[in-house]
Nucleic acid binder design. Structure first.
Length: 641
DNA sequence: AAAACTCGGATACGCAAG
DNA sequence: CTTGCGTATCCGAGTTTT
């Protein structure tokens, strides 16, 4: 079972390299600087890796005046001079962009710091601003100011895993001018960071080496860990056995289970194919260019029902391990760097990218970051129709042979105009069944673009809401009636989970929670997560659901009532209401959450958006940081008790 | 307020050629 | 292995009409 030491691969999917950055779990509920991707295995470092290098830099080129590279804490060559000056620089002349300030303030950062960070980084470099703010919190242990009460971190000695790494750090809530002098540990940490070590690695190393370890011991430890990681990087061999040093592995280590077949030839064949596949995946998921994301092909995540069994195993970082379980979703084809940022905020867990075309008759490419086990998944039954013709039998009769689609494209919130289907009809009416190739091509292009189906001779149509309901795995009429107009139905559906896909991932919870679970559901929409759990037969005890759309809340609640749920549904209309205070009350009254699930708004991330595809900092999509915040707050509060 | 309509970009992939 | 070009995809936004 022992793999070749030099090939042993726990992290087939590393996307960062030997200079990973990515501290996490900082008491302030804020964490860390996102990973700085650099060259692979030290070899590809080259010119690309000089200096700070992630996507924000490219943005600067276009949108912002050039900023000095020192604006970034973790520069590669400049080796992490903390540019943050924790002193009291008076900042009366704040940036003009008050909107930006308030956005950061809403995220929980103190106003003064926001202003300072903006001054340091320039208004347009939001990534760097965020990083600076997080670094303030990391290095100064002053948690972002909460609008309401926040758990008292000074008692974090007893906190759960999430804060253990910094557990001896006192924090003085909200009083910036009243900062305690740095403790010895903090000083050491700061020193290591100044020396250029990633804060995350430094803090882990300090924990491992013990209280009174010397700097030399700690740096030795970090070097050893980095070498181990470099060795891992050579992996490409699927053989991996969990071993005693498992903890030392890259936290996001994911590996392939060893093949069981003993026949040499088959084994070798399998091996070759696997290596190839793995290499491709490894190389491409996040490349050194600052998060260019390339998705696994086929996009089957860590396994789909039609495969005999998942071929992937992974080890999660300690801090990511539940309770609670968490599950975060968003569109797979996000702009550069987005998934990398998401992942770096969520314990560097590799997103599971899945196209729901493997679960239904319609595509839906999504990434899921979660800490659920991967073994023993079971699909929702009955297996839904897998082709357009099975899903929409009435279309078969009119489907021209030259339209070769068997799967629909992604269901979106917008739908084709009647004008378009009219143009299509007219274009086809001039011919019999065999229009010229040019016309065929145009029609098919439009059909694909707008997900049209054939409902009559020469007649195409967009999907009806009830058809979308079943494609997405919802019960018929889930979104119908009760005062919900068609537009709202389509919008709610377009923004939803594909239930079968999510249920497949969540199915592992069934045996763990035979008596039901408590769910914190963020950005619930029309209740895809709950429908999935319900259809899996997992009783819902308490569901706290946050959803801003009134229509969606109504849809969800009427489903809840019509399915005679035994548990309690608490719905909240704004995620910002869910502060530490409220969470603590909810946790006390429910006994804690078993699952925190949600997909934050994608509209600033989705490829369909031509107007405001601003990435994670977009107006709506930045709510991801609330998912992150709430996850950490819940972990903290639950860890306390 | 809901429906209808117009607008049209970032990203990645496959392929051929250097 | 890299570069350039054509192609396919996409949980949308903004404005006008009903």
């Amino acid at each position: 079972m022992e793999g070749d030491p030099d090939k042993e691969g726990s992290d087939g999917f590393r996307w960062d390299s030997d200079e990973e950055e990515g501290p996490r779990n900082i008491p302030a509920l804020a964490c860390l600087s996102p990973i700085v991707p650099v060259g692979e295995d030290g070899a590809g470092g080259g010119e690309l890796s000089d200096g700070f290098h992630w996507d924000s830099e490219e943005e600067e080129d276009e949108k912002a005046p050039k900023l000095p590279s020192s604006s970034c804490l973790y520069s590669r060559d400049g080796v992490g001079k903390a540019v943050v000056d924790p002193g009291e620089a008076s900042s009366s002349a704040g940036p003009s962009n008050t909107k930006m300030i308030s956005e950061f303030v809403v995220m929980g950062f103190p106003r003064e710091r926001v202003i300072k960070a903006i001054e340091e980084n320039g208004e347009s470099n939001t990534e760097a601003i965020l990083e600076t703010l997080l670094t303030y919190s990391a290095l100064e242990e002053s948690p972002p100011e909460q609008k309401h009460a926040v758990p008292n971190l000074s008692s974090s000695e007893s906190a759960g895993d999430i804060f253990n790494e910094f557990s001896d750090v006192d924090s003085d809530l909200g009083t910036e001018e009243n900062m305690d002098p740095l403790s010895e540990k903090e000083n050491t940490l700061k020193l290591l960071v100044d020396m250029g070590y990633p804060i995350y690695e430094a803090s882990i190393a300090m924990d491992r080496c013990g209280e009174d370890a010397s700097i030399a011991e700690i740096t030795d430890f970090i070097c050893a860990a980095q070498m181990a990681k470099a060795a891992d990087a050579h992996l490409a061999e699927p053989t991996y056995s969990p071993s005693s040093d498992e903890e030392e592995r890259k936290p996001n280590g994911i590996c392939f289970a060893p093949p069981k077949n003993n026949k040499r030839r088959f084994f070798e064949e399998e091996e070759r194919r696997r290596r190839k596949r793995e290499k491709r995946f490894e190389k491409k998921v996040f490349d050194e260019d600052g998060g260019v994301l390339s998705l696994p092909k086929p996009m089957i995540g860590f396994g789909i029902p039609s495969e005999p069994r998942p071929i992937i195993r992974r080890t999660l970082p300690q801090a990511a391990i539940g309770p609670p379980y968490f599950y975060y979703e968003n569109v797979a084809l996000a702009p550069k760097g987005v998934w990398q940022t998401i992942s770096s905020f969520l314990y560097e867990i590799m997103p599971e990218f899945v196209d729901s075309k493997f679960f239904s008759a319609a595509a839906r490419k999504r990434g899921y970051v979660h800490n659920l086990p991967l073994e023993n998944r079971t699909p929702l039954l009955p297996i839904p129709p897998q082709t357009i013709h099975e899903a929409l039998p009435l279309t078969k009769k009119f489907w021209p042979h030259w339209d070769g689609r068997t799967k629909l494209n992604c269901v979106q919130t917008c739908t084709a105009s009647a004008k378009l289907t009219e143009r299509i009809r007219k274009a086809l009416e001039d011919y019999d069944d065999e229009p010229p190739l040019k016309v065929q091509k145009w029609v098919i292009d439009e059909c694909k673009k707008w997900n049209l189906v054939w409902v009559g001779r020469h007649k195409t149509a967009p999907l009806e809401p009830d058809e979308i309901e079943s494609l997405l795995g919802f019960p018929k009429n889930h979104t119908r009636g009760g005062g919900i107009c068609r537009t709202e139905r389509l919008k709610g559906l377009g923004n939803s989970f594909q239930v079968d896909t999510v249920a497949y991932h969540l199915s592992v919870l069934k045996d763990m929670f035979p008596n039901g679970i408590n769910v914190l559901s963020l950005f619930s929409g029309i209740g895809g997560a709950e429908v999935a759990l319900y259809r899996l037969g997992i009783p819902l005890k308490n569901v706290v659901s946050v959803e801003i759309s009134e229509s969606s809340r109504n849809i969800f609640r009427s489903w809840w009532e019509s399915t005679n749920q035994k548990g309690n549904l608490i719905d909240i209309n704004d995620v910002h209401l869910l502060d530490a205070n409220m969470l603590e009350k909810l946790i006390n009254s429910t006994g804690g959450f078993d699952l925190i699930i949600g997909g934050s708004p994608c509209n600033n991330i989705s490829g369909s958006n031509r107007v405001s595809r601003d990435g994670l900092e977009g107006k709506e999509s930045s709510l991801f940081f609330d998912y992150f915040r709430i996850l950490n707050q819940v972990k903290f509060i639950m860890g306390k008790s």
